[in-house]
Nucleic acid binder design. Sequence first.
DNA 1: TCACATTGGTAAACTGTTTAAATAGAGTTC
DNA 2: GAACTCTATTTAAACAGTTTACCAATGTGA
Lengths: 359, 359
Amino acid sequence: METTQTVSGKSVSARRSREGKPVSLRDVAKLANVSVATVSMVINDNPRISRATHIKVQRLIDRLGYRPNRLAQSLSGRYTQVLALMLPALRHTFADAYFGELISGICDRAGKLGYKVMIEQAKPEFIKEKKHIDIFERRYVDGLICMGLNDRHHFLSDFSENKYPCVMADNYFPKWKLDHVVCDYRGGAEQAMSYLLQLGHKKIGLICAASEIQTCRDVMDVYMARLREAGQNVDGTWTEDGQFTESGGATATELLLARHPDITALLACNDKMAVGALHYLAGAGMKVPDDISVLGFDDLRHTAFITPALTTVHLPLYQVGANACERLVERIHGRSERVVETLPTHLVLRNSTAMAKNK
Amino acid sequence: METTQTVSGKSVSARRSREGKPVSLRDVAKLANVSVATVSMVINDNPRISRATHIKVQRLIDRLGYRPNRLAQSLSGRYTQVLALMLPALRHTFADAYFGELISGICDRAGKLGYKVMIEQAKPEFIKEKKHIDIFERRYVDGLICMGLNDRHHFLSDFSENKYPCVMADNYFPKWKLDHVVCDYRGGAEQAMSYLLQLGHKKIGLICAASEIQTCRDVMDVYMARLREAGQNVDGTWTEDGQFTESGGATATELLLARHPDITALLACNDKMAVGALHYLAGAGMKVPDDISVLGFDDLRHTAFITPALTTVHLPLYQVGANACERLVERIHGRSERVVETLPTHLVLRNSTAMAKNK
DNA sequence: TCACATTGGTAAACTGTTTAAATAGAGTTC
DNA sequence: GAACTCTATTTAAACAGTTTACCAATGTGA
């Protein structure tokens, strides 16, 4: 009783004990007449503390509004409970719905697993100064999720061999042994090509992008294979780089149609380029899907609302993000086998595709 | 010389001294034959250290690849050099290009100022558990930038009176005295309305959104005022809530046209709703801009590529993010006057608007 | 030549937590 | 009643830095 009274008479509801300083473990310990170790064990629900002590200390903690300092916790503990997200250093990376979906998945899952998420961008000087290693060595984070990177990001080799917990989201790199969670781009390409061929299209142009990205090469491979299977004689002139952007997609469309005016369908490696294609075609007075079909990849939310609504391969990006996060946390907790996870895609039929016209 | 040899003979290029542990300040001090205080001062460029010692120690630091542990630095120092971003807990927050632009601006500027950025979402339980205060008290971050919040987020009152450094990005709350950097929504609305009136439109519908958001109310105010000035007798039936989404915008358009079939122009409070309006109109067989004009707010990048390309009020969101970040850092460093910054907007003319038809 | 200031550096205290080892005390066994 | 367990708790050493008070060795002025 004595103790309790002293306590309530002191700094209760002040939240800050010694002039302005936040309440610390020591303050709680002193007022509870126990050692700091005891308080620490109470916070961490250590079963070695008796029920009575636990309740007594917990009550005081609540009263004082004590909150453990996470810097100190991380410093003495093994983990920081923070993950980093590595994004490419593009002009307006975050305004891109593709990354947005991945990030949404990651953040939601990270929150559920008790992790905070920190943002990093793979700027040239960031890599040059080895900051990607810094974030681990200086104890900023426990793990890293990378996205939007390509074969030229050699720094990724620093993460092979389990040196630091790191997972690739919707990307993979055969030349480095890294964990990854990706969409099944080959499967998606199969679905897209089967559908277009079924609709009677034979002259199909491909708007691809960076050949330094494996998933993009996968789509190209399947595209070539399926067309050759169908007896078409495709070569490089049926393919054009759209740089993953709307304007790039528009330009690529223009070039492809200039070379092959008889094209009846276009397959784009992402939705932004497909939107660019639609934009160019509208400007050029070609009707989609009557004159030409356009098929995208991603299923970004807003492409359902444009005119014509885009037929596209749905990529489970949110899920990829969530799973990547989950796998990363497993790795942080000690899993040592490499993770290679592929998530299925499906076709979303809308209004930008139709039967091929007999030209 | 003796010392140098010992050094090179020991753990140079190992980066980890005592079995597996990373190099610490103490390791450097020992090998350099100076005190830890000296090494600390070298790292922090403290002028009390002589040129000679500085060079000697710095060389050793480079050789050993020593990196100061940021947890320890932050624990003993005043700052963490981390900022938090508070986003609303929507379904796929990050896939939204509006937030994306703000975030891009914040991240770029934060990086330049030497800050890391951490993500938080204002989920109900996050607020209930006072986690928004936790991030400060538990020393996760030095400051906070909020976006996409509204009048019902009462927890914001915890940030008035300079309790913790916090800045609102593209939002403001008359009822709480908070720092903010916003776009000039009133000015933008003036530009939009002037333009529509100039084109001869009189029957103008407004697709607004959450009335708990001041910037939205600003647009509505100007809309009403300008129409009344023009002799139009507007009331609530000319306004419909589109919930900031494409589908909401489509539904709002439908309702507005059902009530007022003579509407010749629609003003939407954001681009997503404008896109939704275009979507509905295309489906309903109405030609934009011939039958009806549509004007948005935001200037999201992709709205230049849809058909018809959207006329919209450009909001300098990237800049708002960057400035908010800058103001926040100033506040962290001690500025005490409140910041209220408004950035100018401008109209971007594209193809979704035209002269009013004489109905 | 003495008093005093300046310079460059060090030892020790401090930040707030975790955790391994030590210990006190109660309960059991022989 | 001594020896031996448990159990609950404490002590003290990490963790890896920063900061302050202090000290020795110079330099300067009267």
